[in-house]
């Protein structure tokens, strides 16, 4: 394929610049941008695993673009070839020689880092919503909130009691605003669930929330390890109806609705 116009910037230089720009954005700009967006006290970097994924995607994109057309491929290789066989400006040769030296050095650094015994715990993948397939969850599957269909004064009454119980038992961790920022939350490595986040209890059917409130971390299934949860087991201390009232008030005050099974 013939190229009619001389490009403003070469393919190789463009790829390197794009990579550098993306890396700089993800590492230097994004953490502060995210901090500014949510009004956090500290910067919010892209987690390392995600950063690696994004950079791999970038590398894939560049590889796909460059190799999907012979002319682009030739244009990409031309400066490298010129630097090796001669014919390119001196600064270009120096830049490429530096890059060529940096690559094995970088790989060596990666090998070194990989072989040093880590002092920090590794990254963990965690289940967002442990399943209800365990023995402890079986009695709760399909349970319906008896207060859900109430209207008027009866519903208000259930909500008032639920809110009171929530304030007494739950707000210390999950927060008075249901945002997972209670007084005790800062003391936990993994913060309590933010009910206002539409990706938490709003994605669950109500029986799953009721099970978690009842059984706490003790009732988590074996396959839900690691048990990163400090949720107490409430069914020994609070009546069942009151637990349903708490669940009702949680959804109501967090301004989210429980998932509803289709056809119901």
């Amino acid at each position: 394929m013939t190229r009619r116009n001389k490009p403003f910037i070469g393919v190789l230089a463009g790829s390197l610049l794009l990579s550098a720009a993306v890396l700089a954005f993800l590492v230097l700009v994004f953490p502060h941008l995210a901090q500014w967006i949510v009004g956090s006290d500290s910067s919010l970097p892209v987690p390392r695993t995600l950063l690696i994924w994004y950079l791999l995607l970038l590398a894939t994109a560049i590889g796909v673009y460059v190799t999907s057309d012979s002319a682009t491929m030739a244009e990409f290789i031309a400066p490298l070839r010129a630097a090796v066989v001669g014919g390119s400006p001196k600064w270009q040769r120096i830049a490429l020689a530096s890059l060529a030296s940096a690559l094995p050095l970088g790989l060596g650094a990666l090998v070194f880092i990989g072989s040093v015994p880590p002092s920090a715990p590794p990254a963990l993948i965690r289940q967002q919503h442990p399943g209800m397939s365990s023995e402890s969850a079986a009695p709760y599957v399909g349970a319906n909130n008896p207060f859900r269909k109430l209207r008027g004064a009866e519903r208000d009454e259930a909500l008032v009691r639920g809110r009171g119980l929530y304030a007494r038992h739950c707000a210390v961790c999950h927060g008075g605003k249901h945002d997972g920022a209670g007084l005790a939350a800062r003391g936990m490595r993994l913060r309590p669930v933010n009910f206002r986040d539409p990706g938490t209890i709003a994605t669950l059917v109500e029986d799953a929330v009721f099970w978690r409130v009842n059984e706490g971390w003790v009732g988590l299934p074996a396959n839900a390890t690691p048990w990163d949860s400090a949720m107490p087991r409430w069914h020994d201390d609070v009546e069942e109806d009151d637990l349903w009232r708490i669940v009702l008030s949680e959804f109501e005050d967090a301004a989210v609705a429980p998932r509803i099974p289709e056809g119901e």
Binding site: S40, L44, A123, L124, L190
Partner: peptide, 18 residues
């Protein structure tokens, strides 16, 4: 997938923006 230090820095298991 988070390191404990990252979770502590973000204040939870979810990145507030991502």
């Amino acid at each position: 997938p988070l390191r404990p230090s990252e979770a502590a820095q973000m204040g939870g298991q979810y990145h507030p923006v991502l």
